[in-house]
Nucleic acid binder design. Structure first.
Lengths: 233, 233
DNA sequence: ACCTTATGACAACACCGTTGACCTGTTAAG
DNA sequence: CTTAACAGGTCAACGGTGTTGTCATAAGGT
């Protein structure tokens, strides 16, 4: 085995698969994303990906050292897609709000990649570009360097963390999701006011609120606190 | 097979395992937690848990319908442990800050359970108690019902989401963690100022800040925004 | 035309969650 | 006290997973 993975630049001798496909890092990443989009995050395994590509699973290890590596490549592609369609307006709060919602939506569609990219640094091209852009927005808004980094970090992690969780929730089978709803309606909403006064008093809101993601609310809180801190200087 | 899992109340005919252990839901949950604490989250599998208990893996399916079920039981036990040692002081911001940090720490120590409990409702005893308590703190602080629920939701989800992610990060093997650090030092900190001015300007802070969790910062932002909104009424 | 080697294929390994069939000790009823 | 029901433990198997050591071969450089 020794060194399985060849740096992309040195790739030359492309040879078609038994089924006639010419592999490449891009093709693998794209196929992986298509697989996730069409059949859910759980449908992504090395073996299934190989099957979808028309290649032996072990061939993929010529391009990625292990699954994590592949996930990071997917994550970077997702970052790229998110940033590609984003246009800043100059209003930093509105811009970051929009970007946060986009990141969240992207992560939500690809929870497994999101979960990885949230605690891993890809160090790849699109990630670097995103870091530079967001830091630019914050420094442009007037945040001093240390504070800009702190807000950047909290902002990004919040978007990715909520994205990963809401994605996992959305990936649950339909009946399971309805069962969750039922817990709020059947268990929580029926607790007597004398033993659980606060739940009883807010039951109506709980049932309505807990079925949605709380990310937009959390994002607004974070951004408004950051703005308040900026003004306070 | 038909109905494998008997409700805990009806459990009577306990019979020791071949290796002499008498199983129970509590013993299984405790052993699972011990396993995670001692050998990391990846060490928890039905088969390993069976081995650690001195029982056939399939025995566990008499107590839990599937792994998710077990995870939810673990999650509820974690909620219980977190709440058990928490004492409110009456200062709602400080109390929620303390609670948030505790939840985060608990989730961080048990990432797999955290990831599950963050998007699932257990509906079990400890969870209900926690919901009641937190809602009580917020309503006691003066939040109107709808707002209390909104803040509750954002607060809890954020604690769990960050806990899950930071837990996953902490669960990485040591060398991999150092490799992450290196990406910031070697890749980001070396980007030239003319192509990436904002990264170059903040490189020092990035290296220092990105290796820590951003949860405390995010928590403080959330709480201060909530307080501002409360005062604004 | 030859040699190197990148790259695909194959078979195997060790693990995983889950289930159906079986067996046995405990318990409750007669 | 006997007996019948069945909870609950065990066993073997299924189909899945990521990963790797070995081998064959076609592409490219010389």
């Amino acid at each position: 085995m020794s060194e399985r993975v060849v740096p992309p630049a040195a790739r030359r001798r492309r040879r078609p698969t038994k089924q006639g496909v010419v592999l490449s890092e891009e093709l693998i990443v794209e196929t992986a994303l298509r697989l996730i989009e069409e059949h859910g995050a759980d449908a992504l395994s090395v073996r299934r990906l190989g099957r979808a590509l028309g290649a032996d699973p072990s061939s993929l290890y010529r391009y990625f050292r292990h699954t994590d590596d592949l996930m990071l490549a997917i994550a970077d592609e997702l970052i790229g897609r998110t940033m590609r369609t984003w246009r800043p307006t100059g209003d930093w709060v509105a811009d970051l709000r929009d970007l946060g919602l986009r990141m969240h939506a992207g992560a939500l569609a690809h929870p497994r990649a999101a979960v990885l990219s949230s605690y891993r640094v890809t160090g790849r091209a699109y990630e670097i570009q995103a870091v530079e852009t967001i830091l630019g927005v914050l420094r442009g808004a007037g945040f001093p360097d240390a504070e800009a980094v702190r807000v950047y970090h909290a902002f990004v992690d919040q978007a990715l963390a909520f994205g990963a969780l809401d994605g996992a929730s959305a990936a649950m089978p339909r009946p399971a999701q309805e069962a969750e709803d039922d817990v709020w309606r059947a268990t929580y909403a029926r607790l007597p006011a004398d033993t659980h006064p606060h739940i009883a008093a807010t039951a109506r809101h709980l049932v309505a609120d807990m079925r949605r993601t709380s990310y937009p609310a959390a994002l607004d809180l974070l951004l408004s606190a950051a703005r308040a801190r900026l003004v306070a200087d």
